[in-house]
């Protein structure tokens, strides 16, 4: 796994939304460089622009200022080189598991068939190829969505609070599945979460965002070896580091509110 060359480069990114009465600045002066094969987690309270950041990288949101480049090329729109996992699995309810993974591709194509079978194995859904989404649990459905994105061999996988709707046990299981995929495939990942444990458990690097306007408030490099144990002293140390950054944000927010009184 090469972790030397830069894959995603963001410089001076500003994004604001115009609503009827006002303009909301969602992101301000974001600087981020993600290297090939890295696993970056982005954490911050709700409304701090996490989804907006991911959507811009995915090419779903345009109309920003600054430069966002993937592999040196400016991002002009969505494409299969940028995989996206939403909080909800968003499967096509009329397609079976394997057809959902194939999506616009045909399973009659031998190459697609083989890759889909491999991915079903990878996300541990063997035996459910013919099931419809209605029959799946939340965790299984999200694994189908991950397989669907991976089939396109994306250069980067963007995950927007992918396990936020799952119960704690399923979430822990999904985190392990995702790490397993990352270690086998080496796909570069950016995962957005508001769960500190999740951010520390998964990331090489944690980006901490603060709201109003969304800005990067801290960066923590997690140099713990995988697999990580959530109960270990090293893990707790990084947890506290991130928590500390959050407390700084709280003080800041409190200070601003105080100044207003």
């Amino acid at each position: 796994m090469s972790t030397s060359s830069s894959l995603l480069n963001i410089q001076g990114l500003d994004k604001s939304f115009q609503t009827e009465q006002q303009s909301v600045q969602a992101l301000r002066q974001i600087e981020l460089d993600v290297k090939e094969g890295e696993f970056v987690t982005v954490i911050g309270p709700s409304g701090c622009g996490k989804s907006t950041l991911l959507r811009i990288i995915a090419g779903l949101d345009t109309g920003y200022e600054g430069s966002v480049k993937l592999g040196g090329q400016p991002i002009t729109g969505p494409g299969i080189d940028k995989g996206f996992i939403f909080q909800e699995p968003r499967l096509f309810p009329w397609l079976t598991v394997e057809k959902n993974i194939a999506a616009d591709l045909s399973l009659r194509d031998k190459d697609v068939r083989r890759r889909v079978d491999e991915l079903i194995e990878l996300v541990k859904l063997k035996g459910f190829e013919q099931a419809y989404p209605k029959a799946l649990s939340g965790g299984m459905a999200q694994r189908v969505a991950i397989a669907r994105a991976l089939l396109r061999n994306p250069r980067i996988l963007l995950l927007d609070e992918p396990f936020g709707a799952l119960d704690a046990f399923t979430r822990a299981h999904m985190q392990e599945v995702l790490l397993d995929i990352w270690e086998r495939n080496g796909t570069t990942m950016i995962l957005v979460t508001h769960d500190i444990d999740e951010a520390v458990f998964l990331g090489n690097r944690i980006i901490i965002l603060k709201p109003r306007p969304g800005e990067i408030r801290g960066r923590v490099t997690v140099d713990l070896p995988y697999p990580r144990k959530k109960s270990s002293a090293g893990f707790q140390e990084f947890r506290y580091k991130v928590l500390n950054e959050f407390e700084r944000i709280d003080e800041l927010a409190f200070g601003e509110a105080g100044a207003g009184i």
């Binding site: 779903l60 969505p78 299969i80 940028k82 968003r90 669907r148």
Partner: peptide
């Protein structure tokens, strides 16, 4: 939401 998925998958 599904339309967005087809955009992401470049249908």
């Amino acid at each position: 939401k599904l339309t967005e998925v087809t955009r992401v998958l470049a249908f």
